[in-house]
C-alpha cells in the first residue's frame, strides 16, 4: 500500500515523531560540504502547484534534488490546465510518464486525497485550501525543537499563534502538531478570524499573552481579506495584532518569533524581524528543506524487507 503525507492527523503521533528525527538527520546532511546524497536516485518527484508559491515550491524542489531524485515542476500558469484539461486528466497524464511522488498545492481543500485516487504514486500535501499544510507544521515543530534543544516532547511550552486563524492552513496544521507534541497553544485573533469552534483557548488581546509565551507565531495577514468586512481596516488590525516595537520589547529574551512567510511588512510586522535575536524566520526556511527531505525519503526510501 502506498503511503502519503497529507495531514498531521493522518500521519499520527508515531510517524510525526519519526519524521522529526529524520528531519534532524537531514539537517545534519545539509550542513556537510556536499549536502547531496544518492538516496533517491532513479525516483521522480512531480511538483504540482495550482496556486502561487515561491518558497514551498523551491523548497520541495531542492529537497528532492538533495536526495538525488529527478524533479518535474508544473506551475499552473504554464500548464494545459489553462486549456481546460481536468485535474484528473493532468494527473493521469503525468502518472503515465512515471512519477513516484506528487507534491500538490491547490486552493481547494481535499485535492491531495483526490490525486491519490487517480494515481498509485505517493502524495505529499504542499497546502490545500484552508485545510492543511503539514510540511510547514513539521518544519515549524523541528525549528522549535532545534532552537530550544528539545526532543519530541513540548510539554510546558506555551505558544501563541496570531492572525487569521480561520482561513489559515498553516495555523491548522501547526496547531495540530504542537498539541500532538504536548505544547499549550493559544489562538490570538479578532473574533471574525477565529474558526466557529475552537479546541484551544482564544483571546483577542495580544498584549495579554505576549510577555509570557515561549513562542510567538505570527501568521501572514492576507491583504485581500481586509476591507472585505471581516477584518478591521489595515491600520486597526496592525494596531491590535501586529508586532511593533513596543510588543517586540515585551517578548521574552528566550522566546522564539516565528512566521511562515512571506512577511507582510507594515501589516502584521511593523519591525524588522531580522534585527530581533528571537527570530527563527530564516531557520524555518533552512529547516523546510530538511523537513521535506525527511518526508520524501520516508515515502520513497522505505521498503518492507527487514534486515
Amino acid at each position: 500500500m502506498t503511503s502519503h503525507f497529507r495531514s498531521i492527523a493522518e500521519a499520527g503521533t508515531e510517524r510525526v515523531r519519526r519524521l522529526l528525527d529524520l528531519t534532524d538527520h537531514m539537517a545534519a546532511v545539509g550542513r556537510r560540504p556536499n549536502p547531496k546524497v544518492p538516496a533517491l536516485r532513479g525516483k521522480t518527484v512531480c511538483n504540482l502547484f495550482f496556486e502561487d508559491s515561491t518558497r514551498t515550491r523551491m523548497s520541495f524542489d531542492l529537497a528532492a534534488k538533495r536526495l538525488s531524485a529527478d524533479t518535474m515542476t508544473l506551475a499552473v500558469s504554464s500548464s494545459s490546465v489553462n486549456k481546460g484539461e481536468s485535474l484528473r486528466d493532468t494527473i493521469e497524464t503525468l502518472d503515465a510518464m512515471g512519477v513516484d511522488a506528487f507534491v500538490v498545492r491547490h486552493r481547494t481543500s481535499g485535492v491531495p486525497w483526490q490525486v491519490a485516487n487517480w494515481s498509485p504514486a505517493a502524495v505529499v500535501n504542499a497546502g490545500d485550501g484552508w485545510h492543511a499544510h503539514p510540511t510547514q507544521a513539521l518544519l515549524d515543530a523541528y525549528t522549535i525543537r532545534q532552537r530550544r534543544g528539545l526532543t519530541n516532547d513540548f510539554t510546558g511550552l506555551k505558544i501563541a499563534i496570531v492572525g487569521d486563524i480561520r482561513h489559515s492552513r498553516v495555523a491548522r496544521s501547526t496547531t495540530e502538531i504542537l498539541l500532538m507534541l504536548g505544547a499549550e497553544v493559544i489562538h490570538v485573533a479578532p473574533r471574525t478570524l477565529l474558526p466557529p469552534t475552537s479546541h484551544v483557548p482564544t483571546t483577542a488581546d495580544l498584549d495579554e499573552v505576549i510577555d509570557e509565551v515561549d513562542v510567538l507565531y505570527m501568521l501572514r495577514m492576507q491583504r485581500e481579506r481586509m476591507g472585505a468586512g471581516i477584518v478591521p481596516d489595515g491600520g486597526e488590525y496592525s494596531r491590535r495584532f501586529a508586532l511593533d516595537e513596543r510588543r517586540a520589547s515585551a517578548l521574552r529574551g528566550d522566546a522564539l518569533l516565528m512566521h511562515p512567510g512571506p512577511i507582510n511588512r507594515g501589516v502584521e510586522m511593523m519591525v524588522d524581524p531580522t534585527e530581533l535575536s528571537q527570530s527563527t524566520i530564516l531557520d524555518q526556511v533552512t529547516n523546510g528543506i530538511a523537513a521535506r527531505m525527511a518526508v520524501l525519503f520516508d515515502l520513497l526510501g522505505s521498503g518492507e524487507i527487514e534486515e
Binding site: D21, V37, I305
Partner: peptide, 17 residues
C-alpha cells in the same frame, strides 16, 4: 542515505555523521 538497498528496507531515523 548512501546504501544500495534504499527502498528495500523500512526507513529508520538515522544517526548522523
Amino acid at each position: 542515505l548512501h546504501r544500495d538497498d534504499v527502498g528495500l528496507r523500512p526507513v529508520t531515523p538515522g544517526t548522523s555523521s
